[in-house]
Simulated assay, not measured.
Amino acid sequence: MVVAIDGPAGVGKSSISVELAGKTGFHYLNSGNFYRAVTYAALRENLDLETQSIVESFAATIQFEYRDGDIYLAGDNITAELHSDQVDAQVAQVSSFRGVREWVNQRLREISSRRDIIVEGRDISTVVFPDAELKVFLDASPEVRARRRFDQGVSGLSLDEIAEGIRKRDEIDRSKEWGRLVRAEDALYVDTSGLTIEEVCAKVVRKIHEITRKNIEETESKHE
């Protein structure tokens, strides 16, 4: 089964997906980390991230390894470096390029072909896995998302600066030519603003159980 989770930056997709993976035994796959990895690698090479052809050509040459949920570059685990302020500031631009998105999408499909997964991102349920058994769209206001990130204490920016960055990220994500953030018509919509991670997970787990029961019943009816 593929559980595809979409939503804007800072809505808690990663935390919720990790929790869901623990409750279901599904493999957790963070699509955003692949875009962040390309951004990190490009920044390390001091590339011009505004020029699409340069970034796309570079992405096609990167030899990443994906092991146990972590991303390795040239043998080094770079996962901890992927949420720096520098990467945060550039990843929306990098992920807007079609060639980069196609490269990442292919990696995601390869990884998902061998296991049950919970995968999250911006266009997972609309582009990457349009036939996913369960689609979920998580949402929250920019102010709530900024406060959550600020409270994590991982950024050197002020609350206002984080909020402004999130608004700009939303604008880019919703207006991309390729892979724009949009809610799938058949997605389960969850406004997380006033909910705990446990409460959000409970809603999604109930839906997974409903789909599983339905699939079992349909299989049994075919064999009667």
Rank of each mutant, 00 (worst) to 15 (best):
N33P: 01
P8R: 08
E177Q: 14
E217Q: 12
E199S: 11
Q86N: 05
Q52G: 00
R98W: 02
V87N: 03
S57H: 07
Y40A: 10
G25W: 02
N105M: 02
G12R: 10
R122P: 01
E198D: 15
E171M: 10
E171H: 14
Y35T: 08
D116C: 06
G10Y: 05
D131V: 04
S155K: 04
V3P: 05
D139K: 02
V154N: 15
A37K: 00
L108E: 03
A4L: 12
S221D: 09
R44F: 01
R147C: 03
A80P: 00
G75Y: 07
Y35K: 11
M1D: 03
R101K: 11
H209D: 13
G194H: 14
S14Y: 00
L159M: 04
V182A: 13
K214W: 05
A163L: 11
S112N: 07
L82N: 09
D6H: 04
I211W: 09
E81C: 13
E161T: 13
S95V: 07
T196Y: 11
E218W: 01
I111W: 08
V200P: 09
A92C: 10
L188Q: 14
F64Q: 05
E19D: 10
G7Q: 07
D191H: 08
F129I: 00
F26D: 09
Y35I: 01
D151R: 11
